[in-house]
Amino acid sequence: MTTLDSPPASPHAPRPLPDTARRVLVMGIVNRTRDSFFDEGRTWGLEAAVGAGLAAGRAGAELIDVGGVKFAPGDPVPVAEEIDRVVPVLAALRRELPEHVLLSVDTFHAAVARAAIAAGADLINDTTGLSDPQMAATVAETGASLVITHSAARPRCALPRPHYDDVVAEVRAFLADRLQRALAAGIPRERIVLDPGPDLNKNTLQTLEMLRGFEEYASLGLPLLAALSRKDFVGESLGLPKQERLEGSLAAAAWTIRHGARILRVHDVEATVRLVRMLEVLAGWRDPTGPLVHNT
């Protein structure tokens, strides 16, 4: 069992995020949980989790996000247990993946973040918007990057019938406030990413309204992460189960890229990478890679 007392200084220097002014990064999801939303425990085993991360890297993911506790309501997972779930995966992936593939950990505990960074994580993906008062200071001290996500409930607690008078404005205000907290803790702006949190403590109509106003979050001047993959707002929009939501997820991803998203957190890495590369070519950010023989 991993000890939480007096954590050693990290031998790993977190690497900064690439410049996303003219590129979109694809983040592959690896859930080391028995009850994850989409993979339903298929990557619970250590070997399976590492294999999924390596496969995502081969498919073109430039970030791998490893999580040991799902966002949905449930019993608390002890911090030491969460560390024991994610650290071996991160350590193995850091040994095996190319250096350009960055590692992320999906956690809202500062102690987990510190252990993950020591094991090779470059980015902390906090889906609770700095609910742990030590998180911002930990990220600043270690030199990692941070995703700040909007969510309204306490971690792992339900929020029945969420209400917003103006969901776009209220989410933006939350992100602006948490951004200032992160900056005050000493995290440089270039190491901060914002995520409006589609479906997180929001119903489908609220999520759709938020996505229609997505560029409001881009106006905060930082890269945006869009976590849309297979989510319920896609399923309820199209009347489809999660196994049949790929096309809807890709359409939502394209919409958010058009309005400022620069990181896509996804289950379907290969299809998303192809979508992203085509949009980058259309935008003039990337040259075609195939032989140019048509009408030549």
Rank of each mutant, 00 (worst) to 15 (best):
V269F: 14
V89G: 12
R212I: 00
S131I: 00
P7R: 10
G284Y: 10
R178T: 02
E99G: 13
E216S: 15
P18I: 02
H150T: 15
P188D: 12
R15C: 09
L264N: 09
D19F: 07
H294L: 09
S10V: 07
R178F: 00
S219T: 09
R15F: 07
R178L: 02
D19G: 06
A56W: 02
P198Y: 01
R262P: 12
P162L: 07
V79A: 13
R245F: 09
P8A: 11
V86R: 05
G129A: 10
L102C: 05
L205F: 10
D84R: 12
T204N: 03
W44I: 00
A113F: 14
L90S: 07
L97A: 04
A218P: 04
F174W: 11
R94G: 01
M135E: 05
E81M: 10
L46G: 02
D199R: 10
Y217S: 03
A13Q: 13
M1T: 14
D195N: 13
P133R: 08
H163N: 03
I64H: 03
S151W: 15
L130Q: 01
A152V: 08
R262W: 11
L208T: 09
L194G: 10
E236D: 14
R230Q: 07
R154S: 14
G260R: 06
T20D: 00
V266C: 09
S219F: 02
W44K: 01
V30P: 01
M210T: 04
L250C: 12
G213R: 04
H163E: 15
A55N: 10
T256F: 10
R189S: 12
A254M: 08
R161F: 07
A56S: 15
P198F: 02
I83M: 06
D126I: 03
R161W: 05
V193I: 15
G120M: 04
L93S: 09
A115K: 04
P88Q: 10
M278N: 01
